[in-house]
Write a protein that binds this DNA or RNA. Sequence first.
DNA 1: AGTTGTGAAATCTTTCACAGCC
DNA 2: GGCTGTGAAAGATTTCACAACT
Lengths: 213, 213
Amino acid sequence: MAKVPSAAISRLVTYLRILEDLEARGINRTSSEQLAEEAQVTAFQVRKDLSYFGSYGTRGVGYTVQILRRELRQILGLNRRWGLCIVGMGRLGQAIADYPGFSEIFELKGLFDRDPSKITTTFRGLQVESMDNLPRAVAERRIEFGLLAVPADSAQAVADRLVESGIKGILNFAPAVLEVPKEVAVENVDFLAGLSRLSFFVLNPKWREEMIG
Amino acid sequence: MAKVPSAAISRLVTYLRILEDLEARGINRTSSEQLAEEAQVTAFQVRKDLSYFGSYGTRGVGYTVQILRRELRQILGLNRRWGLCIVGMGRLGQAIADYPGFSEIFELKGLFDRDPSKITTTFRGLQVESMDNLPRAVAERRIEFGLLAVPADSAQAVADRLVESGIKGILNFAPAVLEVPKEVAVENVDFLAGLSRLSFFVLNPKWREEMIG
DNA sequence: AGTTGTGAAATCTTTCACAGCC
DNA sequence: GGCTGTGAAAGATTTCACAACT
């Protein structure tokens, strides 16, 4: 399997969004040309990008929306929901938890805050917990990702606690540059910024290695 | 002037952040090697990236932090603050307005919300206004950018009103794909997501044309 | 007849070696 | 002597033409 340009992966996310839109509109057949138009790239590019991973269409016919969508979700690791906790339940943490599409990608399994007064409050059916519960929660509830929405001055300390707890990835929304082990830093967390392409993906392990672009 | 890879521009933003950090630490001389190490690229790359825009160092010596910083801010259009209004003052709008570093880039010149009950409230010294004031505010207060933090279902309508009002750019934080004239869509709005690299820039008009990468 | 999938060409980006300057 | 600035080489990505298949 050839090396995949990392730009190709980003475009896959765009194609997926388009396919989901087509499916919602009840359209079940498409072509590289149509995808290209919507994604503002060339049809050559669409076909090449897909070809890095396999062949999902039918010559002379095109692509079945549902099938291609399923394949892309599989490639991008979005065919399942990931367990997530949010640390820091200020306005930002709350806004993120409410973001549309959020629950399609993540299953919210814990809310944490340093402030004891917040601990009585409930959000999206979960009670905010003390930071002391964090290590146990990560271990026991299959929490794979931690989303940091704390002030800059505590971001590094909280990140360290997440790493100690054995978290798989950190989505950093705190206004700080973190020093964390490379495997744990999640790039491309774009829901919220710019745009609506749900730009979070966890590349399927099968393809992850080739993608150090 | 040669064509500039758009990836180079993104790296400029990184170099700028590093220079600001160096300056804060009282360091006033640096080298392509040091910048490269911090930015996790090669020294060749740093020098090449800078060379697209000019020569800002001294051979045999290196770069003066202050000078290079000023030049990069100039290139990236961050040597001035831009007038901005926020439309939608829910939790997201509020969290964004409070984001550290926000006021270094933007001068907040208007807060708008559809909800009449919000109109009595004050935020960062500005009273929230009715949407009816929008066109006049944009025209009279030199508001160059509009930041959209409204629900998905009203995002397009609000974007249209911003465009009609003669806004120069729209920073879209609403969970919707907008159809707006190309000149008005702002890419690379990254404060908030991922990183802490302040990833907003308005390329200096002198260089903007070459940079359709 | 029509559209995908892909090797090869063209283009773009990064790396490199060293000339140029302090 | 040392570090920048840059043309040219190497490498990566995108474009293209067309063979392959329905």
